[in-house]
Design a protein around this nucleic acid. Structure first.
Lengths: 228, 228
DNA sequence: GTAAGTTTCAAACGCTTGTTCTAAAGTCAT
DNA sequence: ATGACTTTAGAACAAGCGTTTGAAACTTAC
């Protein structure tokens, strides 16, 4: 068997005589699983739901990915890398200019990849942000293990960038503000609206990404730069 | 059988000869279920996990609550009412003074009950905020049905209060800002730290409620009142 | 003490879950 | 076309799930 590693490392091999637009088995599983994990959560999504909607055999999941846990990991890893890379690329471009960065520029450098993701169905659209949101509160093993070491550079880069952009604050204050700022930005794109617990909020139902950004940036920047 | 309704409506009947500090069966189930639902989520928490830790028979859940779904509803409803009532009481007190309210006062009127909850283990401590957080992203049936009509007064009161406190903004802007504000306040108390996806954040590990408030209020108030 | 009502208990129910197995089908270089 | 390899297929597995049952234990009132 060849399965996971080879499959993911060689996505170049497009099948020659494909009817139309029907991705290979592993990709179809990933796409369906991503959507169902977001909709119902990891535990409430069964392999049979996934394989039926993906129109593949039940055993295909274990053949291509090894286990349900490993499938989840693959679903997550497919998106996280490009997303983090996009954020870091934004930071690179900003820092290359040489001049001092503002908090607003840093905020936008994170929001722009979120926005691009939300608008690109080929990369799962807003699904990935929602998946991260679910995975975060579900406290999945994967996050505490694999991601911590692989992508800690993300937090390090933003932390030092914010420390330079907001020199009037100490390291601890910066940490708190970043915590709040990323919290609200993240939940905004994930569509998590606390108020919809109490009443069907009209804010989150009209989820135009550009509208989100327009309202989000002033709020976050003001929170970040407010005097203590 | 007597079960759910009677049980919940007559919590006065304290058993006469209780050994010590061991609540009755239904309460023990609620306490354990609340904690496990928060830790593992609804789907990943089995009735056997609950009944074993609560040291009650497996059938006790269905006897006292009817079903696993109904148990979840009972767990949630035990906390939501008093919490909303506390927030509204804060609003009442503020509005009774007659003078115009500031955004900061409104923010504090929500934060104070959150803080009180976080510090009171008898009421589940921070568990309930985390439960609401999980339930929100898990998009549970209960939220869309029972709560919307019962507690929509919560959003209505805060909306009109914020409209009076921030008369320079239109209704739609207010809605967005409240969406962001409650998002960040809520996640702060729930301990959801997006950054901990990437690196074990020191902010959220030191989860002193008073510290949260101290940093949270300036951030939220600045975001709410920032010019558009 | 008896009878009615309430709660606990162990056992079992039918069903779904993730996973495994073996054979069949498909693919591809030689 | 043969042989090696990869992928798909259907069936079965043990384990765990929420729920139900009926009898035992307990409580309460007369």
């Amino acid at each position: 068997m060849m399965s996971k590693a080879t499959q993911l490392l060689t996505p170049i091999k497009v099948q020659d005589s494909m009817e139309v637009n029907k991705p290979d088995t592993a990709t179809r599983i990933l796409d369906v699983a991503e959507r169902l994990f977001v909709e119902h959560g990891f535990e409430a999504t069964s392999l049979r739901m996934i394989t039926q909607q993906a129109e593949v055999n039940l055993a295909a999941v274990n053949y291509h990915f090894g286990s349900k846990d490993a499938l989840f990991e693959s679903v997550f890893m497919r998106r996280i890398g490009p997303f983090v890379a996009a954020c870091l690329a934004e930071l690179d471009t900003l820092e290359q200019s040489g001049q001092a960065l503002t908090a607003e520029q840093l905020v936008v450098s994170f929001i722009r990849p979120c926005l691009a993701l939300s608008k690109d169905p080929a990369r799962g659209g807003a699904l990935f942000v929602r998946l991260m949101s679910r995975t975060l509160v579900e406290n999945h093993r994967l996050l505490r293990e694999a991601l911590n070491q692989q992508y800690s550079i993300f937090v390090q880069r933003y932390t030092s960038a914010f420390q330079r952009a907001l020199p009037q604050f100490g390291a601890e204050d910066i940490a708190w503000r970043m915590h709040f700022a990323f919290s609200v930005m993240f939940n905004a794109f994930a569509g998590n609206d606390v108020l919809k617990i109490f009443v069907r909020s009209q804010v989150v139902t009209a989820r135009d990404p550009d509208m989100i950004v327009k309202h989000l940036v002033p709020f976050v920047v003001a929170g970040l730069t407010a005097p203590i």
